[in-house]
């Protein structure tokens, strides 16, 4: 065991763990976060997705010691209770069934939109493709993403506030 310091959702945490421990178990069991979840432990499903360095990362196969920069989890994208536009769209479209995969859907979509606020339909399908859902909510996930993409365009033209425009998709 060794002392490992992690930056998560704007806070700093030092935990006692084996360096090879997958980040997922540290987030869930030591930091009490419940956005990222165990689905496969193999990097295949996306249920454990967090954002590191702007990229959607599968925390179940990421050794905790390899994480050097800030980690953002589902809990971290709605600071002060203000929902992220994707979360808002998820509610408006009534996306989840059981919801177990939705952490992965939302976090993967967020990492995509942060890099490319106006993805094409093909890019959305491609980027989201290895984020699985066994309730088959995919159609609504895509609809909700497109809702945010369209709103993002509207905000750019209608809303002069740069904060709202950038913040919206950041």
């Amino acid at each position: 065991m060794s002392q490992i310091t992690l930056r998560v959702n704007g806070g700093s945490h030092t935990v006692d763990a084996e360096p090879t421990t997958p980040l997922l178990y540290i987030l869930r069991n030591d930091l009490g976060l419940q956005g990222p979840r165990f689905g496969c432990g193999l990097g295949q499903c996306g249920a454990c997705t967090v954002i590191v360095n702007g990229a959607a990362v599968r925390s179940c196969i990421t050794p905790v010691s390899s994480v050097r920069t800030e980690v953002t989890t589902l809990e971290g994208i709605s600071p002060n209770g203000k929902l992220h536009p994707l979360q808002q769209a998820w509610i408006e479209e009534q996306v989840p069934q059981c919801g177990f995969c939705q952490n992965g859907q939302i976090m993967t979509a967020k990492a995509m939109l942060d890099k490319n606020p106006h993805p094409t339909d093909a890019q959305i399908r491609e980027t989201m493709s290895s984020t699985l859902c066994r309730c088959f909510s995919h159609f609504r996930v895509q609809t909700a993403i497109k809702r945010v993409v369209v709103k993002g365009v509207a905000r750019g033209t209608e809303d002069a506030s740069p904060a709202a425009g950038r913040e919206g998709l950041a």
Binding site: L33, G35, L74, E75, S78, L83, W90, V95, P96, G99
Partner: peptide
């Protein structure tokens, strides 16, 4: 049930 499923709570 949906809000708590999308905000992580």
């Amino acid at each position: 049930d949906i809000p708590a499923k999308v905000d992580g709570s």
